[in-house]
Design a protein around this nucleic acid. Sequence first.
DNA 1: TCAAATCATACCCGATAAGGTATAAATATT
DNA 2: AATATTTATACCTTATCGGGTATGATTTGA
Lengths: 72, 72
Amino acid sequence: MKPIVTFIKEKRRALKLSQVELAFKSGVGLRFVRELEQGKTTLRLDKVNQVLALFGKQVGITDLDHVEEEEN
Amino acid sequence: MKPIVTFIKEKRRALKLSQVELAFKSGVGLRFVRELEQGKTTLRLDKVNQVLALFGKQVGITDLDHVEEEEN
DNA sequence: TCAAATCATACCCGATAAGGTATAAATATT
DNA sequence: AATATTTATACCTTATCGGGTATGATTTGA
């Protein structure tokens, strides 16, 4: 399972968006996008979803990665 | 995809835990467990993970449910 | 190599999440 | 039915998230 952090970074760059643009398009603050991409763990769920929605994703339940199988 | 809310409620009851016990075992406040099970969307990510960890789960990326296929 | 764009870090402020607790409502147990 | 357990609602306080912004670092590209 790919961490949210890396998913967002990859997806954003794939779409050639800057953090500023991503912030604007998703309606969150720039600060938030930065903290998000830097792996801050105390973010608010709804804000994270707000960003993920831009990529057709949302937060959901996944297995706890102990050893980690990969995919995607 | 099962919403986090329902997953937690189901899992907790399956393990015959009260909200109080769940709160204690996961190390979050009782209030948090309540708000979590009532679908509050502004919760902090790390706290949600703290609870999910008890069930071997964590928060991750899932598809946005438009029409919703079921499973599980 | 220099300039421009992008990103990281740090500060302040207002809003609110989280915890604690108390009480009421609802469920379960006897 | 009466009681005990569990859950919901409400109030208060503290800590901090999120936004804004400014500055410095890093990356990109001309």
